[in-house]
Design a protein around this nucleic acid. Sequence first.
DNA 1: ATTATATATGAACAGTTGTTAATTTAAACT
DNA 2: AGTTTAAATTAACAACTGTTCATATATAAT
Lengths: 203, 203
Amino acid sequence: MNTQHHKKNTTKQKILKAATALFSEYGYKGTSVRKIASEIGIKQSALYNHFKNKENIFLEVSKDIFTTPFSFDDEEIKQNALKGKAFISKFAQQYKLLTFDKNSEKMFRLLMIELLQNRELREQFMSEFHDKNVKILAEGFFIMMQNSLVRSGDPMIMAYEFISTLFYIRLQVTLLRFDSKSTDMLSTQFEKHVDYFWESIKV
Amino acid sequence: MNTQHHKKNTTKQKILKAATALFSEYGYKGTSVRKIASEIGIKQSALYNHFKNKENIFLEVSKDIFTTPFSFDDEEIKQNALKGKAFISKFAQQYKLLTFDKNSEKMFRLLMIELLQNRELREQFMSEFHDKNVKILAEGFFIMMQNSLVRSGDPMIMAYEFISTLFYIRLQVTLLRFDSKSTDMLSTQFEKHVDYFWESIKV
DNA sequence: ATTATATATGAACAGTTGTTAATTTAAACT
DNA sequence: AGTTTAAATTAACAACTGTTCATATATAAT
């Protein structure tokens, strides 16, 4: 038990926690090292015992942005796709969980704040957030087509249509929650999307 | 001819132009008044003869974010909706034009950069960018349903589905262009979306 | 107890930030 | 001409930035 996962409350962990909260609210430039330090009751110079510099703090924080809880391996996709609607429903449900999960929400905010300021994040957004999900969904739709569960067409386009709405809902929810506004109007939007979408593709 | 529209090349106009370019690339905090001034060859203190402060420059620049070129009045919606696919096609086409228009692109980037840093922008995003468009589209779909041009359903949901994909495409295009990457893969995405969507709703 | 190691502090650094004031330069009006 | 008005410059301000370094204070190992 020397791997320090979960979560020795070391100064380093406290720094990361405070930095996460601040970066995901004010962005990289809007967060000063003094602010991070004062948040956990130390002076800014003490940070440099734990991190080389501000950027390294950010890098460690932003590592978590793309550690997605969905893991669909090829076999799983095949199994689930045969169930038709349940496949996209499960996918959307996991997406919804991420949307309302506290830590994932922070990571998503951070991503949105820094998306146009950080080239690497943009590239990861494209590959991890977009391409990866489109691929999973497209494979699912392809299998559904083979089994005549959905009308035929370009599975990539279908996947694109499906994911884009999920993303849009997530963005809206994130913005509302950022202002502590009610998300009641959107609370069933994920489900409505699944229902609508399935109606539009089922054979 | 004393209204100074179009575009007396005054210092004030030059400031706004330079500020627009900088804000839409580096954001509000990432743009200094010295940088704006040097861009047009004056000292920073001279800015204060034309604007009260930095924030006022930003406010004047960001005014243009929501001046949308689409204007669909109620009569126009009615007329166009009766044409079915041509309605959504026209809508998407105008959205595409905005996406690739140089100035609109800057405004959209600025919006995305500041979305989580500026509460008023968030609210305008919701009302001007989302609600307004959903309303127009939902009215169109409602009329189409009445005339049995599309399958029946909730026109608001239909509108939501349609607009969310347009937004997602625009975001992707904007990110690619920001890095001077090719948007070839997305160049026909708007049209594909219209085709796919129409297929999925037409009766 | 003594040494070694890890972590904290206070002070200072060199830059940058937005903004103001006094002053000079340029343009417009009488 | 001279006088008023507008727009530029130089200089400075106080506050804040990330980072370094010498020093002090704990904790752990011998």
